[in-house]
């Protein structure tokens, strides 16, 4: 009787120590689920979801404060991926947060630009280059197309231009062909 109790206590202590050490040693920094959600989000940082960026939205989803269908740039595909990850039902995009648009970049009309730096302050990814009273320009490669630079511009010199298909970003299309009905084929 006493031996068995001692054995159990002994085991409990050993296991307790091992678990305690591993809890310290293998501590996970941050919440991995937030990282996972964040890696699905398109990183446009546009704030259309109602949060100030993709990471805050990911955090809100993880805490159950936001729904998975608030990200227009992520589109239907993004919602499907989030639904798969979180094991919840798919929902169509909430139209309150906007419609998905073709991917575009901002272009500054350099003649009109007065160099007020307001757009630089608004850009979430530092994709605008310029300084006070000097012309600004967009680093196209870095622009996520979030449109956050549009409202602060006092002279309305920024346009969103959809990215056109060119020989570089061109993709092979899904094959489309007609399958004839057997009866029609016989008739011909």
């Amino acid at each position: 009787m006493i031996t068995s109790i001692l054995v159990v206590i002994f085991l409990a202590v050993i296991i307790g120590i091992v678990l305690g050490i591993s809890a310290i040693k293998f501590k996970v920094e941050g919440d991995p689920i937030i990282e996972k959600i964040d890696s699905i989000l398109p990183q446009t940082q546009c704030g259309q979801c109602g949060f100030p960026g993709c990471k805050p939205y990911a955090t809100a989803i993880a805490n159950g404060e936001a729904d998975i269908n608030q990200c227009p740039p992520g589109g239907d595909e993004g919602i499907h991926k989030l639904a798969d990850l979180l094991g919840v039902e798919y929902k169509p995009l909430n139209a309150e947060h906007g419609e998905p648009k073709p991917k575009s970049v901002a272009i500054i009309d350099e003649k009109t630009c007065i160099g007020c730096t307001l757009c630089i302050q608004a850009c979430p990814v530092d994709a605008i280059l310029g300084s006070a009273k000097h012309m600004h320009t967009i680093i196209e490669k870095e622009c996520t197309g979030c449109e956050l630079c549009l409202p602060p511009c006092p002279v309305d010199c920024i346009d969103m231009v959809a990215i056109e298909e060119n020989a570089e970003n061109w993709k092979w299309k899904y094959p489309v062909y007609k399958i004839d009905k057997v009866s029609e084929r016989r008739a011909s």
Binding site: D38, S39, L41, P42, Q43, T44, Q45, G53, C54, K55, P124, V125, D126, A127, E142, T144, N169, K171, W172, K173, Y174, P175
Partner: peptide, 30 residues
């Protein structure tokens, strides 16, 4: 034609993923 379609879809997905990572980094840096 199906394989070419699938390949270019995957290549674009990878490219978008890379772009998103760059955007995330730049945002965090900012």
């Amino acid at each position: 034609q199906y394989y070419r379609f699938a390949k270019s879809e995957i290549i674009e997905e990878r490219h978008e993923y890379e772009q998103a990572n760059i955007a995330r980094e730049r945002n965090e840096f900012r």
